[in-house]
Design a protein around this nucleic acid. Structure first.
Lengths: 113, 113
DNA sequence: TGTATAATTTGACATTTCAATAACTATTGA
DNA sequence: TCAATAGTTATTGAAATGTCAAATTATACA
């Protein structure tokens, strides 16, 4: 997921990865809690290790999270660049050519008043 | 989908609706081509009527598109408010509390220099 | 070395999703 | 009223997805 723009199937992959309640919870836990080990995620979300691993693989395959080994643990983290790329896809591909229609959502985070 | 904020399961519903190549194509066709009848969508996308109807129902159920009858045709259109609400959810819930991390995606559509 | 811990992988199973055909409903217009 | 058109709704079967328990790999440490 190093390219700037997503193909349709990459976008579908990223959307699919977030289109599941448990994976969305995982994603949000990593956003709010920062990078953490699989075991800590499992404890926070009350999920068994294999089920968690299954979903983490999905998120990682979609490029939305990264993982690195630290001893016998595996630390997961959000890939914010990839997430931004997905947001950019939604904005460009789905609102492109119709500026103004999709701008409402951005106002809360605009910093240029 | 008249409320301002989405529940998690509403967000999953909206994401799931877009997490399919054909539905994403339908959505984009409606964005770029504006409101149009199911038959015209079917012709543009080269899809059978029942398959199209199946996916349109999905998008409508997720709240991302609206429909109205016009004679014997049914006109479908993007519900941009709902789409904005979904974008806002992604931004608020997934980047909230970490301003700056998710701002990159907005720059292309910023209108304030 | 032996044991416990952290995580992934595998396999069985149920559920959901998707596509395609055929049947059905509603509307138009000859 | 009858036939054609526009869409939706069953129905079927195939493929993908999700859950859980058990087996496996890798690391740490007594």
């Amino acid at each position: 997921m190093t390219d700037g723009a997503l193909t349709t199937s990459q976008a579908v992959g990223a959307l699919s990865a977030l289109a599941n309640e448990m994976r969305l919870d995982i994603f949000r836990a990593l956003v709010s809690g920062g990078a953490m080990a699989a075991g800590e995620l499992a404890a926070r979300l009350g999920v068994g290790p294999s089920t968690l691993s299954f979903h983490l693989k999905d998120l990682r395959h979609a490029g939305l999270v990264t993982s690195r080994k630290d001893g016998r643990r595996v630390i997961y983290a959000i890939d914010f660049d990839a997430f931004n790329t997905m947001l950019a896809f939604l904005i460009d591909e789905c609102c492109g050519g119709r500026p103004g229609l999709c701008l409402d959502a951005f106002k809360p985070v605009k910093t240029c008043a």
